[in-house]
Design a binder for these strands. Structure first.
Lengths: 220, 220
DNA sequence: CGTGCGGAAATTGGATCCCGTCTCTGGGAG
DNA sequence: CTCCCAGAGACGGGATCCAATTTCCGCACG
């Protein structure tokens, strides 16, 4: 009998459930920037007390997804244009290096699973699903680098810009263009051309940043 | 009457006081890896209840400084050699780029204040003070880049390796060598040579990593 | 003598309650 | 009519209490 070892010890604490739910709602854009997080409202929603909610909120604050003021409560954090730009620059820096290191380590399973994400990206029309698949595609490739701290840092940066990315791509049909870039990145990986994959990734990030900024400035 | 505007709203919550104290104790190496963090004990130390302590601990976990298991409590997190190496690679990547971007923006105040940190580094013999000054020196230079997210990311990475760095440098007298590297970096900044400053910073980080790993493997 | 089991103590997770602060509103003064 | 202020309700921070789980220790049994 084979067992998949899962750390059962940290499952299902109320605080972590609330944390994950709020994080998901924020990065998916369901809770928009500035929305106040009322502790007892959230507690009622999850049939729990305010204690786990407070823990969840302080963890979200540590992640930079909410900002809170003493005695005033927490609100969903937002990013101005400069901050957005900077995080994309950061992503371009780190992700470029990570994919460069990942390419030499890529096996067939990595390429196959990434390809599956890519196919999902081409067939789905749901913006939420598209966002998850987009993230899964890149993360699957990065994993081959075997650099967990880098991956964690990338994930944290993605968490901050994810909702803007999803919102910007669904309209202003850059989806097809973005998917074409994904294919080019995948092919570079499959051919083992690390430098090309890195250049394409940098360009992919820069382009999505430009599209995002354009989209945001057009609408004030 | 001139007032220094400080955001009084988020000062002195019990949770943040406990958080900062624990963070300081961990990155200074006072609480060594594996030490369990007993909520009751900490609460007694700070004359408070366990509630703020729990918030502080979950924030520390989000920062990666402690790991906790449900119903078993939290312990100070540690790093193995691979993780240490990776975080230094990460630092080399990000800090190199940040200092490159910082050099063109450096004004006299930046150079003067960094110089003051440098002088402190040369005169102090206290390992704790040395660690703070070292960090202050680099952070002061980085600040000129105007890249707050990058700085935050660097700080998070530093938090994880700080205690190892301090412990390794105090004996095995690489302090003088490290300070010589600091001087070289400072001079490159003063001359406005961004690429040189970047190269020296990368080398500085690589060297401290090598010294650290040597020090750790020698002692098991 | 080692092993396993059972219960008590220790410790964490969560609920409820209280207190300090903020905010909003309504009424009175200018 | 506007502005200001007092007071009440809303809300967050923290304390205390209860429940659930783990850990430790002693004792019986093989």
């Amino acid at each position: 009998m084979k067992l998949q070892p899962i750390d059962i010890s940290k499952t299902a604490s109320a605080a972590s459930i609330v944390f994950e739910a709020l994080r998901k709602a924020i990065i998916e854009g369901e809770l928009i920037e500035g929305t106040p997080l009322r502790q007892d409202e959230i507690a009622r929603l999850f049939n729990t007390s305010r204690i786990p909610v407070r823990e969840a909120i302080s963890r979200l604050e540590e992640k930079g997804l909410v900002t809170s003021q003493r005695f005033k409560g927490a609100v969903v954090a937002g990013l101005n244009l400069d901050e957005l730009r900077e995080i994309f620059e950061y992503r371009a820096l780190v992700e470029t290096e990570v994919i460069r290191r990942a390419v030499p380590n890529m096996d067939q399973a990595t390429l196959d699973e990434a390809k599956a994400y890519f196919h999902g990206l081409n067939t789905t029309s749901d913006p939420l699903a598209w966002g998850d698949l987009n993230r899964g595609f890149h993360e699957r490739l990065y994993r081959a680098a075997g650099l967990p701290y880098h991956e964690e840092a990338i994930g944290k940066a993605m968490d901050r810009v994810d909702r803007y990315l999803r919102a910007a791509l669904v309209r202003s049909g850059n989806v097809a263009k973005s998917n074409a870039e994904h294919l080019a990145i995948w092919e570079a990986c499959a051919q083992g051309d690390a430098d090309l994959a890195a250049d394409l990734t940098r360009e992919h990030i820069n382009l999505s940043c430009e599209g995002l900024l354009l989209n945001m400035t057009r609408r004030g």
